[in-house]
Design a protein around this nucleic acid. Sequence first.
DNA 1: AAAAAAT
Length: 500
Amino acid sequence: MADKAASPEKKSWADVEEEEEAKAKAAAEAEAAAAASSSSTTEPTVEEQAKQIEALSLAPAVEDAAGEEGPPLLDDSDDSQIQAVTSGGTVYESATMFEDLKLSPELLKGLHDEMGFSRPSKIQAITLPMILTPPYKDLVAQAHNGSGKTTCFVLGMLSRVDQQRKIPQAICICPTRELAQQNKAVLMRMGKFTGITCACAIPPAQKDYMPISKMAPITDQIVIGTSGTLIKWITHKKLATRDIKILVFDEADHMLAEDGFRSDSERMMRDIQRSAGGCQVLLFSATFNERVKDFVTKVIRDGNQIFVKKEELTLEKVKQYKVQVPDESAKIEVIRDKIFEFGQKVGQVIIFVRTKQSTKNVHNALTREDYVCSSIQGSLDQSEREKIIQEFKDGYTKVLISTDVLARGFDQAQVNLVINYDMPIKYGTRDEPDYEVYLHRIGRAGRFGRKGAVFNLLCGPTDNVVMKKIEDYFQHSVPEVRNWQREEDFEAALKDAGLL
DNA sequence: AAAAAAT
């Protein structure tokens, strides 16, 4: 349907190699869109323009934290490709500099001095004007893992709340507690000079338990949390939604998926829209499968939309490999004797397993005197979860075994090796891959354009079917490490990935 | 099965 309606000359941005050509294209498309909006009825125009925006395919932009070594700051030529995009009669000039965005001096200081960002990444350049320009339209935006989506919505929330008013004005909903805490940490750094405060709505550790009736109403301008606790705070009148101006869904495809958090999300949206009137809704994720995309475009009718073709979603700098192993014990052997030897020299490692029980089993099997491993899953007490994450972020632990609790959003620059101990499978199927989870897992390596490697440990015909389907889906063939018993083969793979 | 509420 989308393809049929698209104009014949439409071209994906990734197809355009030369910068000059890209510039011309951008100008032409923007002009065409602007012309269309002024000369025809609203209904088809919005659709057409949405298609054009959809055609933007976002290459991973490079962004870096202050004082860190690593790749240079921004892919400048890439950014300059985008001149302007329009939707529903509103023309947006893409932001070349953060200074183009009428941000407060305090926020600019936070971006430059505290975060160390010099210029907006591609997704930031496109979406920030959409987020910050009246009439504050809703937005659904897809961009690659590690391309700087968090900055988009964090900046959106920080810019749109009034620091003088001590009431909640922005809410961000996340699928996991870790992601809520991480997003809050980013927001506090970015908003360091603004005086804006933020509450994290997640269940407390057991030792901190307090009946909700004793809790004081929230006076922070921004609340970031998980759906259960947010709903609880709202129903017990601890979180007033009357003045909410902006509602953000991080990992939005999962938050709106039927087998995800759709019912919670719909309830939040309904309650907040009802009490706060028209509040801006932002949906961000690296993945939107067709089912969710259909649903999302129905929910966000009059908003701006940015999507990326699935074939262009795999990160080029993260090299994927498959390894055939005879049985489960060989998986442990491969990790312990082959991958760790090099992996530890290189950086930090995350090993993904399917079940909570597996985290413990694999952890025990991998424990050696000289490697500090840890494991995490959602049944641990909150204090345990926090301790394990902190130790990993501090670099004390080098190897973290995890369920999919960390598959999405977890941002640790030093992670450049991901191991799929178990392949991600759709619930209720035997050999149907969960493509979105796969993409998110491998996105834990190669943050902000860094190099990375992924080893998919395959055992038996089912795993191979799954791997083949993943390669077909993303139209990306994954090379094989020939012999699981040869150290040299793994060394060669890591060298090829640029990690050695 | 994993995640997320509290119970």
